[in-house]
């Protein structure tokens, strides 16, 4: 453990949620020009990975799965301070739900000989939070989801995480390797340094792995995804009165009717 820990941070490219709005009359979505960005909760994952490296030494490797343009989020992680990045890219990954996605990330983490894998709480476009425990389950590793802070104990070979649980918190010591999902907003991500940013944009090239490189070409993609989207309905907009009142008295009168 003298060389520090191999820290892997999983990141995802998503449509910018802030640019997605709803038309109140039709209930339809205006997301036409939402640009692709790094999933917001992943900023907290990257920060945790860098802080962990500061504490115990070692390296931070960012990984993502997606088509080649997704390497932009690896670039963002490298700009923030990650040492390197791996892009899992292959047509075979297309249509993967959380089962094969977590398999691919789990195999990559294994290839990278990870001690700690850090993810964001969930993605803003799918919001399942299923991938971090999925990675842990595929590899038979410990998991710490909904983690607010990390306390590494390299001498004991454990990572202690403070988890947000219903009604309070708990501190859990997990044996390495361990998969962590950080609570969204758990920390203040550091800004990218100028030199690192220039390096990320001009020199950084991600390592690329295919499904065959990970020996999982028969286990990923749509065919190996248990869930299928059976239908998509526009949520019927809730009918509201939309009555404007111009005095607190008038507001009180309306409330008196409903209370």
């Amino acid at each position: 453990m003298n060389d520090g820990w191999n820290i892997v941070v999983c990141v995802k490219q998503v449509p910018d949620a802030d640019d997605v709005t709803i038309d109140p009359d039709t209930g339809t979505l205006n997301r036409s020009d939402a640009p692709a960005v790094l999933n917001k909760p992943d900023h907290n994952a990257v920060e945790s990975a860098l802080a962990l490296r500061d504490a115990v030494g070692g390296t931070v490797t960012a990984i993502t799965m997606g088509p080649p343009p997704a390497s932009a989020v690896l670039q963002a992680a490298v700009a923030a301070g990650a040492d390197g990045g791996v892009l899992l890219t292959d047509r075979a990954f297309g249509g993967s739900d959380t089962w094969p996605t977590s398999l691919a990330l789990a195999r990559a983490a294994e290839e990278l000989d990870a001690d700690v894998v850090i993810c964001g709480e969930e993605s803003t476009d799918s919001s399942t939070g299923q991938v971090p425990p999925g990675i842990a389950a595929h590899n038979g590793w410990a998991q710490l989801t909904y983690t607010e802070s990390l306390d590494p104990r390299p001498d004991e070979g454990v990572l202690v995480g403070t988890r947000d649980v219903e009604g309070g918190y708990e501190r859990v010591a997990a044996a390495l390797p361990v998969v962590v999902a950080m609570v969204f907003g758990a920390n203040d991500p550091r800004p990218a340094g100028l030199h690192r940013k220039i390096f990320a944009e001009t020199e950084f090239e991600p390592v690329q792995w295919t499904a065959a490189d990970l020996d999982i070409e028969d286990r990923v993609g749509l065919a190996n995804s248990p869930t299928k989207v059976g239908g998509m309905d526009t949520a019927s907009p809730v009918e509201r009165e939309r009555t404007r009142v111009d005095s607190v008295e008038a507001l009180y009168d309306h409330l008196a009717e409903v209370l």
Binding site: M232, T234, A235
Partner: peptide, 12 residues
Amino acid sequence: TFGGSAMATIKC
């Protein structure tokens, strides 16, 4: 899904 503007039905 999509921030509540649509309902996705998932089957297995």
